[in-house]
Simulated scan of single mutants.
Amino acid sequence: MTPDAPWLIAGLGNPGPWFRLTRHNAGFLAVDRLAERHGARFRRSGLAGLTAEIGIDGHRVLLAKPLWWSINLSGRPVAALLRRHGVPVERLVVVQDDLDFPFGSARLKRGGGPGGHNGVRSVGEVLGTRDFVRLRFGIGRPPKGRSVGDFVLKKFSEEELAVMPGELDRCADALETLVRRGLNRAQDTLNARTDA
């Protein structure tokens, strides 16, 4: 990997305005926040989805919202963007919602299983590797008696939306630190703030 290789930060979500504030679209919301910070706008990038380009301390960073019918088929557009922009898999970051963490909690890690997230599974299967970084944004578990499928496709509650800007800022901070200073430093920063 060359030192000046670009980064790709891909937020996972479902296409269409109805899904915009649903829990399964936390990945889209996080990359939206990062784009806003840097004054970047998303534009259509062929069949691969929407992309925006930013710079972080001299590093070229491509932000993406893959659009391929469903979040569960995110692998093909992510792979297409990696090829098109010459991004090594070591500099791919996938931002996802995660049922295993309470709302507002977030974790960064490299590799590991998809944990039941079909979009992450699709990326790993298409790329033939899980050696990419994931930012996992906690959305909590559904209330008793409510299905997971129904829960992730419902909008965040009013209480959650009220604090969402701060939670997304924490994620954006972590992603910027990852690019600037590496995974270990970004993990320390994010995990310390999450546990506080």
Rank of each mutant, 00 (worst) to 15 (best):
G16H: 09
W18Y: 11
W18A: 14
W18Q: 15
F19M: 15
R20H: 14
R20W: 07
R20S: 13
L21G: 02
L21F: 10
T22C: 06
T22Q: 02
T22H: 06
R23I: 08
H24P: 07
H24F: 04
H24N: 11
H24R: 05
N25T: 11
N25F: 06
N25R: 06
A26S: 14
G27D: 10
G27S: 10
L29T: 01
L29Q: 01
L29N: 01
A30L: 11
A30R: 00
V31M: 00
V31D: 00
V31T: 01
D32L: 04
D32W: 03
D32S: 02
R33D: 13
R33T: 14
R33Y: 06
R33G: 06
L34G: 04
L34Q: 03
L34R: 04
L34E: 06
A35P: 07
A35D: 04
E36I: 12
E36D: 15
E36Q: 15
R37L: 13
R37T: 08
R37E: 10
H38T: 01
H38F: 11
H38P: 01
G39S: 14
A40G: 12
A40E: 11
A40M: 14
A40D: 11
A40F: 11
A40T: 12
A40W: 12
R41W: 11
R41C: 13
F42T: 05
F42Y: 13
R43G: 15
R44N: 11
R44G: 07
R44I: 09
S45L: 04
S45P: 02
S45A: 15
G46D: 09
G46T: 03
G46N: 07
G46S: 10
G46I: 04
L47W: 06
L47H: 08
L47R: 13
L47Q: 04
A48I: 00
A48F: 08
G49A: 07
L50W: 05
T51V: 15
T51G: 01
T51A: 03
T51K: 00
A52H: 07
A52W: 05
A52Q: 08
E53Y: 01
E53S: 04
E53R: 08
E53P: 01
E53M: 03
E53N: 02
